[in-house]
Design a protein around this nucleic acid. Structure first.
Lengths: 167, 167
DNA sequence: TATTGTTATACTCTATAACTATA
DNA sequence: TATAGTTATAGAGTATAACAATA
């Protein structure tokens, strides 16, 4: 039996089932109502898709988005302090400690005591770390192609342009 | 003294400091290198900005993005089961249990034992929950205007259009 | 006094697995 | 057997606070 036989009409024009009547739906016939007009909702779903694809595409090298961003910034700016990396990427400095512990344990990154300021560490990629980063970048480029396939090449570029201020 | 006096030239044309030399930078002169071309990076930063603004804008009513999405979907589809809501919004059903515990504790939502399937609950907004949701929607619309101010009205609409498939 | 890196704690979120009561 | 809801646990991620060494 179809649901809502004794339901009242809602604003959206749907039948409201009596209390205690569970509506059965296919997932795609459930209305999102106001969520449809919320940029945050779409962005969030898209961002989850992107991270999942990134993780899958770089699974063989066991690198996650944040680790990739840390290595990329250190690779392009050798000698940065932990504070500088944390600020630039919007990561808590307390969290960066653990991220670097992991990358240093894998011999991809090294902390060198700074001579300028003995409180801080100068961060560098190791030689294997530099080679590894080149491979990570190739895989990340592949991931980027997945995005272009998903939303279209022009749309991806438009998106990058719209969000250029959030870097 | 400027950094990099004894550094070697990197591909990016920057001076590489000797090991142990910490580079001093203003945050905005640290290059992101490959991250600039990664949609995921920009999307992630934007998404964090959006969530922070949403949380701030709805702080007075103590409603977070996920709680809002759950109430909106229940409001538009009264009688849904927990599984249906979880699937539709991409939330783990185990997590939805706690989200609903909280909303039910605040008398915004109620679980009604389903007569159709005694394993499941039919979800409804309470009367105060319906009134509250109307207020949440007004505040969420204000948040949406903040987004439009941030990236531009047309860009926001373009974004919604590009990401329409991720709902 | 302030800052860097570190440690610790708490809370949110994600991902599972297992349990119960139903189907 | 399978599914809905629940409980529990572990790992990320976020947000703080406090501490030692150093500025």
């Amino acid at each position: 039996m179809a649901n809502g036989a004794m339901g009242t009409e809602t604003k959206a024009g749907r039948k409201r089932p009596a209390r205690g009547k569970t509506r059965r739906h296919d997932a795609d016939e459930i209305g999102l109502d106001a969520l449809v007009g919320h940029a945050g909702y779409a962005i969030r779903r898209f961002q989850l898709w992107i991270f999942q694809d990134f993780i899958k595409t770089l699974a063989a090298v066991d690198i996650r988005p944040t680790q990739y961003s840390v290595m990329t910034v250190i690779g392009a700016n050798p000698g940065l302090s932990q504070m500088a990396v944390a600020k630039r990427l919007g990561i808590e400095r307390a969290r960066l400690v653990h991220l670097l512990d992991s990358l240093e344990g894998r011999k991809l990154v090294k902390r060198v005591k700074s001579r300028d300021d003995r409180r801080s560490h100068a961060l560098h990629l190791t030689d294997p770390g530099q080679a590894a980063l080149r491979q990570f970048k190739r895989l990340a480029a592949e991931h980027e192609r997945h995005i272009a396939e998903k939303i279209g090449k022009e749309n991806r570029e438009k998106l990058l342009q719209i969000l250029a201020g959030f870097t």
